[in-house]
């Protein structure tokens, strides 16, 4: 399950003992931290403990996004129903682009397309569901472009629930997939 995924002009490289420190640097950036469920700074000890927990986990996968040899962000998926990813039906995807120039860019769709294809087509996951800050209009718009449906959460104005089925994903992403699957010029 822990293999490099390649497509849509990028590579998703599994997080390993050699590269996991980069995630802490990114995760502690003010602009990224502000959009997380937990906005606290992550200490080196906390980060090590987190990595020890996820390194061999069968319920979550974490990747670093590479574009043209540049590491630009991170994407992950976690099982939401307590089962291993190879058996689970419901999962949650998390993404951040750490390099500002690629945040508001078509390239930001590539990691989600690559991972979602793997989850829906290879792992046969039925639905992806997560929560996004209501104030994060860019993320809401981004996820809607991927086919996610938005549902307000009762008694919670801070977050909105978003959910995606394979059908909605397929319908919403045909055009962007075609554009990001063409020949590469450089």
């Amino acid at each position: 399950m822990r293999k490099v995924l390649t497509g849509y002009a990028i590579e998703l490289i599994p997080v390993t003992r050699e590269n996991f420190q980069l995630l802490r640097e990114w995760r502690n950036q003010d602009d990224i931290r502000a959009q997380m469920g937990d906005t606290a700074l992550i200490s080196a000890e906390q980060h090590q403990a987190w990595f020890d927990k996820i390194e061999h986990s069968q319920q979550q996968l974490h990747y670093i996004i590479q574009y043209k040899q540049q590491l630009i962000g991170s994407i992950n998926v976690r099982s939401s129903d307590g089962l291993n990813l190879t058996e689970c039906k419901l999962a949650e995807v998390g993404l951040y682009i750490a390099t500002p120039e690629y945040r508001n860019n078509m390239l930001a769709f590539a990691p989600s397309l690559l991972l979602n294809d793997y989850l829906f087509e290879q792992l046969q996951i039925i639905e992806l569901k997560s929560k996004v800050r209501s104030s994060n209009s860019a993320a809401l718009k981004y996820n809607q472009a991927l086919g996610y449906q938005l549902t307000p959460i009762a008694d919670d104005n801070e977050f909105i629930e978003i959910s995606l089925t394979a059908d909605n994903y397929k319908k919403a992403t045909q055009m962007v997939k075609r554009l990001l699957s063409r020949n590469r010029s450089n």
């Binding site: 002009a9 078509m106 390239l107 554009l179 990001l180 063409r182 020949n183 590469r184 010029s185 450089n186």
Partner: peptide, 12 residues
């Protein structure tokens, strides 16, 4: 013309 993927990404 037909733009390459990298150009579609770079056209910012």
């Amino acid at each position: 013309i037909m733009l390459d993927t990298d150009d579609i990404i770079d056209m910012s």
